[in-house]
Design a protein around this nucleic acid. Structure first.
Lengths: 185, 185
DNA sequence: AGACCTCCATACGCAACCGTATGGAGACCC
DNA sequence: GGGTCTCCATACGGTTGCGTATGGAGGTCT
C-alpha cells in the first residue's frame, strides 16, 4: 500500500540484493524476504528470473563489472607515473564503504561454491597483475614486483574483511606507510 | 551400522563441527546433518546442548583457545630475539592448513553476528598487540610498529581468505620479503 | 470493443530444519 | 532384580523458504 507502485525489472531485484548481501551475507539473499522488501510477491520474482541462482549470477555479474573493470578504467584514465597511479589505486580501493562488505560476503560465498571461486580467482589475478605492472613500471624487478603486489593485495583483502566486520578503516597514514615500503621510499 | 558405537560427549559434536564449518561455512553446521554424520539422531544432540547456538558457542570457545592463546604460547616458549620470534610467528601462522578455512568461516560469520564480532575483535587486538610488541622490541618506533603490525595482520587475514578459497599458499619467499620490509632489512 | 501481452497476486505442494515430548536400552548401584 | 541415571531413538508440530500453477489487472494495438 502506498509504496512506490512502479513496475519492476530484473535490475531492481539485483539492486535490492546488494545491501542485503552486504549486511546479511549470502544466506540472507532469499526470494521471499526480498520480495517483501520490494513490496511485491515472489510471483514477480519468478517472472524475471528462472530461480534464485539466476539472481545470484546476475549479482555476481554486476559486482564483477563494478569492482574490477570500473576501478581499473578509472585509474587508467588518469595519466601519471606508475607510482602516482598506484597511490590513486590504493586510495580508491580503500574507501569503498559498502563495497567492502559486498566483497567480503562474496568471498565467504566462494568457500562453498566452485563457480564463485572461479570468478574470484579471475578477479584476483586481474587485480594483482595490474598492481604488479605498476610496480614493474616503478622500477622493481619482476620477481619483487610480483611478491609485493601479492602483499598489497592480501592486505587489501584483509582490510575489506576488517572494515566489513566493524573495524575502523586503517586510514591514509597506514596506506602511506605500506606504499613507502612497497616502493622503497 | 558397524560405526563406532561409542557414546558421545559434547566434545565429539564440537570436533565434528570444525571440518563442516571449514568446508561449508556456518550454514552447514546444522543439527540434523551433523547427527547423521555422527551416526546418531538429534535426540543425542539436545541431550548435550540446549540448542544449536550452544554448539556454536562451544565451537567458538575451542577456536579462540587454539587459534590465539596456543600459538602465542608456543612462540613465547622459545627464546630468541624479537625478530627471530617474529619469523617464528609468521612461519607458524602461515602453515595452518584447515585452520585457515575455519578462521575464514568464522570471519564470514562475524558479518552477521555481533557476538562473534566482539570475539573476533578481541582476538584481532590480542594478535596485533603481540606483533606490535615484537616490532617495538626490534627497534621500531611505537607508531611505526603499530602501523606495520596492522599491515602484517591484514596480510595474514588476506592469506587465510586466499588459501581457504583454493589459492595456493603464498610461500616462504613472499613472507620473507614481507619480513624484510617490516624490519627494514 | 476485443484480443493480447506484461507484470504481479494468490494458492499450493514439497523439503529441510528447529526444538520438544516421551519412552526405551544399557550400565551401575545396592 | 528393582531403582536410577545417562544417553539416545522416535515421533510430532511449527517455521521458512523454494519453485509451480493459474488467474487477474492494466496497458497496447487494431
Amino acid at each position: 500500500m502506498a509504496a512506490g507502485s512502479e513496475r519492476l525489472g530484473p535490475e531492481a531485484w539485483v539492486a535490492a540484493a546488494f545491501p542485503v548481501l552486504a549486511k546479511g551475507g549470502l544466506e540472507a539473499v532469499r526470494v521471499e524476504p526480498l520480495a517483501e522488501r520490494l513490496g511485491v510477491t515472489k510471483g514477480s520474482f519468478y517472472w524475471h528470473f528462472k530461480d534464485r541462482r539466476a539472481l545470484l549470477d546476475a549479482v555476481l555479474d554486476a559486482w564483477e563489472e563494478r569492482a574490477t573493470s570500473a576501478i581499473i578504467a578509472r585509474v587508467d584514465s588518469k595519466p601519471g607515473t606508475p607510482k602516482e597511479r598506484l597511490a590513486v589505486l590504493m586510495s580508491l580501493t580503500t574507501s569503498v564503504g559498502e563495497g567492502a562488505s559486498v566483497e567480503h560476503a562474496i568471498r565467504a560465498w566462494g568457500a562453498t561454491d566452485a563457480g564463485v571461486r572461479r570468478r574470484l580467482t579471475k578477479v584476483d589475478e586481474t587485480r594483482q597483475a595490474y598492481v604488479r605492472d605498476l610496480l614493474v613500471g616503478a622500477g622493481l624487478t619482476p620477481a619483487r614486483a610480483t611478491a609485493r603486489a601479492r602483499i598489497l593485495y592480501l592486505a587489501l583483502i584483509g582490510e575489506f574483511t576488517w572494515v566489513s566486520l566493524g573495524g575502523e578503516a586503517s586510514g591514509p597514514a597506514l596506506w602511506k606507510e605500506l606504499y613507502g615500503l612497497l616502493t622503497d621510499e
